[in-house]
């Protein structure tokens, strides 16, 4: 079984933000927190491309390496998750993350940050699957329900692929072959190393 991966096909993404609101809808992510967002490069000029970005669930995750309280863990399927009971909201992981994934609600006094929140690959957290605690802290656990991340499942153009990394590459490769061009699997080298 290959690990879980994300891939956003920039030739298809139309910056409709369906993935963003799907995520908010699924997990009731509060205002100000964006587990996923869409960025557009060369906005308004020829060559304009959009990409949907969230935590990539890296093979060798920089956030895990820097967390001072070791609140991160990686599941057998390669999903990088964290424990909000341990998180102290220090923000190191944000600075380490190449994708700017970690997000913090500003709830503390003195403008302090609350617990880090990020994309869970729709796999919840360490609490018992489907428990109330898991829902409230991490959102819905689709993976345990046998469903893939909602952002990818609802993507308007099927630009966003998520799931078994090998299958993701196969689907993408076929697409590139059919159309004869592709702009590369953005972020894959960074997230999953050379073998991508």
């Amino acid at each position: 079984m290959a690990r879980m991966k994300f891939l956003c096909d920039a030739e298809r993404c139309i910056h409709c933000s369906g993935c963003v609101t799907a995520c908010k809808n699924e997990h009731e992510v509060p205002w100000g927190i964006n587990r996923r967002r869409v960025v557009t490069l060369n906005d308004g000029k020829p060559g304009q491309r959009s990409l949907s970005v969230a935590c990539m669930h890296c093979s060798d995750a920089p956030c895990m390496a820097v967390c001072p309280v070791d609140c991160f863990y990686q599941t057998n399927d390669g999903i990088v998750l964290h424990n909000k009971d341990l998180c102290i909201g220090c923000g190191y992981c944000f600075y380490a993350c190449p994708f700017g994934a970690p997000q913090y609600p500003s709830t503390g006094n003195f403008g302090g940050r609350g617990k880090m929140d990020k994309c869970t690959f729709c796999a919840g957290g360490p609490e018992v699957d489907h428990s109330k605690a898991e829902l409230e802290k991490y959102g819905r656990n689709r993976i345990a329900e046998g469903k893939l991340p909602l952002c990818a499942e609802m993507c308007a153009t099927k630009a966003l692929l998520a799931g078994d990394g090998d299958m993701v590459s196969t689907i993408y490769r076929e697409r590139v072959m059919a159309r004869g061009f592709g702009s590369g699997a953005a972020g894959w080298g960074q997230a999953y190393g050379k073998k991508g």
Partner: peptide, 29 residues
């Protein structure tokens, strides 16, 4: 590991452009 490269650099490869980090943070809300 070297200093982590930022998303902006990763993405730059796609469109041959750079994203200004400030603008990026702004977009991310």
């Amino acid at each position: 590991s070297t200093a982590p490269s930022r998303l902006s650099e990763t993405l730059a490869a796609v469109a041959g452009a750079t994203v200004d980090r400030r603008a990026f943070l702004k977009r991310s809300g």
